[in-house]
Nucleic acid binder design. Structure first.
Lengths: 170, 170
DNA sequence: TATTGTTATACTCTATAACTATA
DNA sequence: TATAGTTATAGAGTATAACAATA
């Protein structure tokens, strides 16, 4: 028996493998689906290297300067403090970050990037570059720019952490 | 004691609650974060009505015509067939969809929308409309259009289910 | 033997809350 | 008593696989 789904004459031209028009018409739906796919792709690719996208986020953050406490890292990245512990553990085990107890407040850990961490970060950056290019592949350079700008505007509107480093407004 | 994080003079102008520049510069990262936030918002809002976004997806799909099998619904929406069972169960219990055994192949269920389902779908549509508008709030109408078009181009490039109903190419 | 729908199981992710050591 | 970091626990969500009915 043939497994073709349309043995009988197609009365209605309904394409079985098409999403409902009204879902595709929703920006929220598109963002949700695309975002999920992006995250999945990223997780897969980082997994190959034995890491997760969160590891990259931590290293990227630390590359902009060491942090006085773990809590500021967690808050900046929007992850739970307890979740960050495991991330830092694995990065520290591999010698990519360093935890130093703050002598003035021995509860705190000053976290900083090591040379090995910077090296790994470079690899992560080329991974992300490939991923970004793959995702926006069907767009020309100008459209890519436009898309990014629009996404950033929306993101920073809903979450101030996305706000671009404003010059001289502090 | 004041909980302000900056008691000491700020040597470095590092803003603790800002995401790393290079992450914000990544379209994949923006998409991932925004998508996650969108999904979360949607789940919350549907939850108030006692539903999930998946319920809406199913009703929206069925509003375009009944389906000969549950599998085509699952495949079109990209959910697992076993996951769909529970969704259809809850919708059927509330009288919003109907399962009829196909007399020609008693393994199959023909699934269709009821009057109550159509009514609920209308409520879902106004919910989604509000959600969409809230998300793209900072954009003017033209930018919203542009954003949607760019997202749709990317989505359909990676997943043919997003492809707009092409006229006369069947 | 293959397929449709269903149920059961396991696993990941995350959110919460308890715990320690310092203050 | 409150805070920084840590550990443990529980819950939701999802993916996998086993199962019964039918072809």
């Amino acid at each position: 028996m043939i497994s073709s789904p349309s043995v009988e004459p197609p009365d209605q031209p309904a394409a079985p493998l098409r999403l409902p028009q009204e879902l595709v018409a929703s920006t929220a739906f598109l963002l949700g689906r695309l975002g999920y796919a992006c995250k999945g792709r990223a997780v897969e690719e980082f997994e190959v290297l034995g890491f997760s996208p969160y590891h990259y986020s931590v290293l990227a953050l630390l590359s902009e300067g060491e942090r006085e406490t773990q809590a500021t890292i967690a808050d900046a990245l929007g992850v739970d403090r307890s979740q960050l512990v495991g991330l830092l553990d694995s990065l520290e085990e591999r010698g990519m970050i360093e935890r130093r107890r703050d002598p003035h407040d021995r509860r705190r850990h000053v976290v900083s990037l090591t040379a090995a961490g910077k090296k790994q970060l470079a690899k992560f950056r080329s991974l992300i570059k490939r991923l970004d290019e793959d995702i926006v592949a069907p767009l020309d350079p100008e459209s890519r720019e436009t898309l990014h700008e629009l996404l950033l505007r929306i993101a920073s509107h809903h979450d101030p952490r996305f706000a671009a480093a404003s010059v001289g407004s502090g």
